Computed example of a mutant assay.
Amino acid sequence: MKKLTEEIIKSMSETFEGQPWFGDSVMRKLENLPYVIGYKTCIPESHNVAQIVGHLIAWKRYAVEKLKENESYNIEIDTPEDWPEINVHSQEEWEELKRELVAAQGNIYEQLNAKKDDSYLQKKVSGKEYNFDYLLNGIIQHDIYHIGQIGLIESQLKNKEVDSGVFKT
């Protein structure tokens, strides 16, 4: 039986492309952002939206590799693998980055749907002190956290860009 896995998929889907109670899902938030916001930051040292999307992709790929039992795959925090240097300078680049994110999410669903039952959820992730249930719920929390960051960047830049025509009113 895969009742817990189905609940995880449902929560992931709601957060990623659905209508969560807290506001916009990841994709709804990104679909409503003009591409020129993708490479802008509120302060010079902060990550831009494109880098945050790259970071989300990286950790979704990590989850997929761990679900495939790839013991050698790892991401070190605060490295280029964790925070890839990504900039978007055209609508086409922005759309491609969003497609990569959707594909990474789809790969998680594919791995979860292939599981025969929920027993893997209590199994330790190779090389880690946590199990798959913790990892997968962490991916959901990670999405929610970064939706908030993207929303903050969007609201700050809206104030700065109010007369530029970037945001349609």
Rank of each mutant, 00 (worst) to 15 (best):
I43E: 14
S119H: 11
L97W: 03
K115Y: 02
T5V: 13
F167E: 02
S11I: 05
C42D: 10
I9E: 08
E14H: 01
V162R: 07
D163W: 12
W83L: 14
Q51R: 12
C42W: 08
H142F: 04
E17F: 01
T79S: 15
G38F: 11
I139A: 09
A103C: 05
G148Y: 04
D82W: 11
S11R: 10
G18D: 08
R61K: 15
D117L: 06
V88A: 09
E31Y: 07
D163L: 14
E6C: 10
K10G: 00
S126H: 08
V64A: 13
Y145W: 11
N107T: 00
Q122H: 11
V26A: 05
T15L: 03
D117C: 05
S119K: 12
Y109T: 03
G18H: 05
T169P: 02
D24E: 04
V64F: 12
E81N: 15
I9F: 03
I57Y: 12
S164M: 08
Q122S: 13
E81C: 11
Q111S: 03
T79M: 13
G165M: 12
W21S: 07
I139M: 14
Q141S: 14
S119W: 03
Q122W: 11
F16C: 06
V166D: 10
N131Q: 05
E6V: 08
S72Q: 15
Q19Y: 05
I57E: 08
D118N: 09
I139V: 15
D117W: 04
L152V: 13
D143W: 00
S119G: 03
Y145I: 03
V102K: 15
Q51Y: 08
G18R: 07
W94D: 06
P84K: 11
D143K: 00
Q91I: 08
E71D: 14
F167C: 02
L121Y: 01
P44A: 12
W94T: 07
E154C: 01
Q156N: 09
V53R: 06
V26R: 01
V36F: 02
P80Q: 13
L56H: 10
K60P: 00
Q105K: 08
K158S: 03
V36Y: 00
I52Q: 09
Y109V: 04
S126Y: 07
Y145K: 00
L97M: 06
T79F: 14
W83V: 15
K158Y: 01
N159D: 06
S46N: 10
V125W: 04
T15V: 13
E95N: 14
E76K: 15
I52S: 05
N107D: 13
T15D: 02
H142P: 05
R61F: 02
D117H: 02
E17D: 08
A103W: 02
K40I: 00
N74C: 12
I139F: 02
E76L: 15
G165R: 09
E6L: 14
E81I: 04
N137M: 04
Q111G: 00
I153F: 01
Q156H: 08
A103E: 14
S90Q: 13
Q149R: 00
E92S: 14
E93R: 09
I52L: 15
M12G: 06
W94E: 06
S25M: 04
L30A: 06
P44T: 10
N159C: 03
S155G: 00
S155I: 06
L121I: 04
H146N: 01
D24Q: 06
A50W: 06
T169G: 12
F132Y: 15
I147R: 00
K60C: 07
D82H: 10
S126M: 07
N70T: 10
